[in-house]
Design a protein around this nucleic acid. Structure first.
Lengths: 340, 340
DNA sequence: CCACCCCATGAGAGCGCTCTCACAGGCAGA
DNA sequence: TCTGCCTGTGAGAGCGCTCTCATGGGGTGG
């Protein structure tokens, strides 16, 4: 029990084998739960493991198994942005949570620029992780091809901007969500529904805009004015000012995320509009903030936890040697609060 | 260039050695930048590495080096809470950022309950990480002792509730921050300064409360009423109702974090108080939300990015064999907005 | 011209594990 | 009783790397 300086060498399989009076192979079998071990031997080994406090060395195991039992979560945003974006934070946490109990560990990797692409590819090929989860890709991102070509199991969060053979993804139904949001506005009797879209190099932004158009088309309305933001609060505020200038009579807004909606709210207030009386607003994401805006934001909730779980499941089965599965699209839901 | 199925075996040191016409040892020297290599040999090897696309196998290297070049960030909160807590999200991101360029990877570990303690200890002892960053410890947490005893380099975020020999920590100046916040209120001429403290089993909460008391004592004021929350918005709202009931004439509030402050704001509004005219409010943390409350929250900013950077630096030097450094306390600052 | 040293290089052991293969012993069937 | 099989066990190779140690060749000093 004298732990002392942790420098003391950890016991190895051989140590355990000697202590138990069996061979290294038998100890290995016990550790790995092989059925071909007699009860007596098993008991002997388990006692020795217990007494010695033996823990298998992962590096050694990895070396021979060619498998590390860990996966990488790669973030494709400048980290300042990650800091600000609650969606990504949620993805990180939800993923780590989805991994609990699987014995698989999560390695967090920032790779925003091209030098880091190369390093990342090397990192993965060096066998430090068994697979990669790619969060928040942008259009033209070369990483999926690099990874697929290197034979690395990969699952992307969000629909890629182009089909990549052998690449699975898990997305939420952004078209449906945009439609849901817009329908809500139309159903409330609004006739001039504007939108603040996100950067169209992100498929989520493009899809939400598609949903918006689809809903209006189905309602037989012409699309209202559209402006574009960068998913930030400030860009939302600015975009709203533009929209008001272009169409002072607009009576509803669909913003492609809550941050921009929050900025729009501020611009609307500054312009003297009452919400939702003069202008109804629906956001997207249902981040924490949406509950705290004035008025509280009606918005679209994305199943982030489900998405993270689905992504890890797909990745783990792929790592397990199963064929690459089909993309999964998860449903979104409308959260009704006070802004619409 | 036929990448084909990634199943093709990666080139090894031997492959490279054969290709370059030198020995494995020489290749190893080149890879590791040893000076004892002739320029010709170096060039030969570099060419071969390039042609073969060789990447060293980390497991093999770890095995012999007894070092993995990765560290664990251990979160000690139920993951639902992590999801909600922007502070922890920021720590995660800031840490991953601090690691860029060091060649060290970040492994995210959730360990909230006791079964997971054991698993975590085993995990670390199995040599999968070189050191551990411990975020948001609670009182009585056995993990530091477990890790220190196992000889694992460890750095804690936030002051532990008890001294642990051999354990470094990095904290922000919570006492000073609490004092700063309260002084702001006093300086504004407030005479009945209430507080909503956090759970006192977290030293950050206790320290902020100490700062509050210290500021009032120095100003010659008696402490106002105090209530306790769990750092959540709801608990803040509830605590504020209590406080108003106990002392309807209070004219200022220091809330130990922004979430609780935001809840308090809502309770104050519900009670018909104008902010900051009737009641001034100062929060703590300067999370994103603080900018969006109505009115925007005056608060204390913690140097999260600095903290994460300092923690990783301390850990890396410790892993590098340097003696355990002294605790570091980082300064906080007042962010003036509209609520006080 | 010889002795000495230094530097680049290669051979080989060993890190801790898994897994194949051979083998011993026990049991069933003929 | 003998053959055949099946089951538990051990020996040993090998995963890809680092590092020690021995070696040979070239340069310098006497």
């Amino acid at each position: 029990m004298t732990a002392g300086s942790g420098t003391r060498r950890q016991p190895t399989l051989d140590t355990v084998a000697a202590e138990a009076g069996v061979s290294r192979a038998t100890v290995s079998r016990v550790i790995n739960g092989s059925p071909r071990v007699s009860p007596e031997a098993r008991e002997l080994v388990e006692g020795a493991v217990e007494r010695l406090g033996y823990v298998p060395n992962r590096a050694a195991r990895s070396l021979v198994m060619r498998r590390t039992d860990s996966i990488a979560l790669v973030l494709r945003e400048p980290s300042e942005l990650v800091l600000a974006d609650p969606y990504l934070a949620a993805i990180i946490v939800a993923t780590s949570r989805a991994l609990i109990g699987t014995g698989v560990q999560l390695v967090l990797v920032n790779a925003q620029n091209d030098r880091e692409h190369a390093r990342l590819a090397d990192y993965v090929r060096s066998g430090h992780v068994d697979g990669v989860l790619l969060a928040s890709m942008h259009a033209g991102d070369p990483l999926p091809e690099i990874l697929i070509t290197a034979g690395v199991p990969t699952v992307v969060g969000g629909r890629p901007d182009r089909p990549v053979p052998g690449l699975t993804y898990v997305d939420s139904d952004n078209v449906g969500g945009g439609q849901l949001a817009t329908e809500r506005l139309v159903a409330a009797g609004r006739r001039r529904v504007a939108t603040i879209a996100g950067p169209l190099d992100m498929t989520a932004a493009a899809d939400r805009l598609t949903g918006y158009h689809r809903a209006l088309a189905q309602a037989g309305q012409a699309p209202g004015p559209a402006a574009y933001g960068r998913f930030t609060r400030e860009s939302g505020e600015q975009a709203m000012h533009q929209l008001l200038e272009r169409d002072p009579n607009l009576d509803a807004l669909f913003a492609a995320n809550d941050m921009m909606a929050s900025g729009a709210l501020r611009a609307l207030r500054a312009a003297g509009r009452r919400i939702p009386d003069d202008v109804s607003v629906v956001g997207y994401d249902d981040i924490e903030l949406a509950r705290h805006t004035e008025p509280a934001l009606t918005t679209i909730r994305q199943p982030i936890v489900d998405q993270a779980r689905t992504m890890t499941e797909l990745l783990l089965t792929q790592i397990g040697g199963q064929p690459v599965g089909n993309p999964v699209i998860l449903p979104t839901e409308l959260v009704e609060r006070d802004s619409a």
